[in-house]
Amino acid sequence: METTLSYNESELVKSLKERDNQSFKYLYNHYSNALYSIILQIVPDQELASDVLQEVFINIWRKISTYDQEKGRLFTWMLNIARNAAIDSIRSKAYQNSKKNKEFPTVVDVHTNSQMTQLNVDSIGLKKTLETLKSEHRVLIELAYFKGYTHEEIAAMEEIPLGTVKTRIRTALTQLREYLK
């Protein structure tokens, strides 16, 4: 019966906040593909991404009482949990790797050098629309959104002023929005 149930968003949030297990199962059945695909854009290794996904759903279950409908849609909230968890996982992985092997000091290198099973995730969602951006913009979105660097970190890494980083990211985002339409 659980797959035939359907909720509108307010009903779903209400059931989730009441910690109704069926509604969490519905949530999983309905959103796991989308969230997994987003995690894969940050964590290309499928095994690791699957672990992150399970952690994300457990976090959603734990933190649902802090979700505030006034601040945005449920999906946006879950998307940000997924993105943060994915970024945390590559950072800690990067940390472990850099301790083991000093020759791979950056996050980016860890991915390209490890023997991981990788999917082509470039056709999914936001990542696909990235291709439409100018390279100077694309790099910044990659670093900020998919790698989780702060604007200050990016300014230092790319050796451009903080103000320029902010302006370029904003410009890139408004362009992305056009492509999402």
Binding site: F57, R177, L180, K181
Partner: peptide
Amino acid sequence: FELQLEKQAFVNVVAPPERVR
């Protein structure tokens, strides 16, 4: 924007392994 983002997030999705579920 949230709706557009959500809609886009369901295009070309990949299913996670059954073990996660």
